[in-house]
């Protein structure tokens, strides 16, 4: 209650101050004049924008889809880079999986038998849960072979949540020669 009184007294004081100011008719008229002036200044500014349509900054999004360029660093989704021979650079080292804070990536490995009969670790499935990804870029930084990168797509909405779980390595792709 004490505090409440303090607040009230502040408000009261303020009112008294305002009253004092308004005691003189000159001040009264000055108040009115200055008040109106400040309003007119605001009105002038909005009128400027009303009449200057070149200031409009709206982007017409779905219409400008074709010309829309996102900056090359924009973090849209993680992709595994494939070249024209359907080869990628992922060795299956799971560094990205470990770096990811939300278990977005799951690397399922298998063992390829090379023609010489040597067993070699390779990815079977690079599972990526887009719905869990926070686009933090940590996996990209962690990858020693730069196999993955961020794509600039952003229209990710789908009707079924399961569609957001993606397998990033394409059908029949294999690791590029010479990537260790």
């Amino acid at each position: 209650m004490q505090e409440f009184k303090k607040e009230v007294s502040f408000v009261e004081k303020n009112k008294i101050a305002i009253k004092k100011k308004n005691m003189f008719i000159v001040n009264y008229i000055k108040d009115v004049f200055n008040g109106v002036k400040s309003l007119v200044v605001g009105l002038r500014r909005t009128m400027y924008y009303f009449s200057h349509h070149k200031e409009i900054i709206t982007e017409q999004y779905p219409d400008n889809r074709d010309t829309l360029v996102l900056p090359d660093r924009f973090k849209g989704e993680v992709i595994l880079v494939h070249d024209e021979n359907n080869e990628h650079a992922c060795t299956g080292c799971t560094a990205c999986e470990l770096a990811c804070p939300n278990a977005t990536i799951k690397i399922i490995t298998k063992f390829d038998i090379s023609p010489e009969g040597k067993k070699k670790k390779a990815i079977d499935k690079f599972v990526y849960h887009l719905e869990l990804c926070t686009m933090c870029n940590l996996c990209i930084v962690a990858c020693p072979t730069d196999a993955i990168k961020m794509a600039q797509t952003f229209e990710h909405s789908v009707y079924n949540r399961a569609e957001l779980t993606k397998v990033l390595n394409k059908q029949g792709s294999k690791i590029r020669e010479g990537v260790e």
Binding site: L70, P71, R73, F74, K75, T134, N137, V141
Partner: peptide
């Protein structure tokens, strides 16, 4: 921000030791 950090709101661009990528 979008150009340099790759995101408009949740950048995660500052990492222990510096910044994640060089500036654009």
């Amino acid at each position: 921000m979008e150009e340099t950090c790759g995101a408009r709101l949740t950048m995660n661009y500052i990492v222990p030791g510096g910044i994640m990528q060089d500036i654009h």
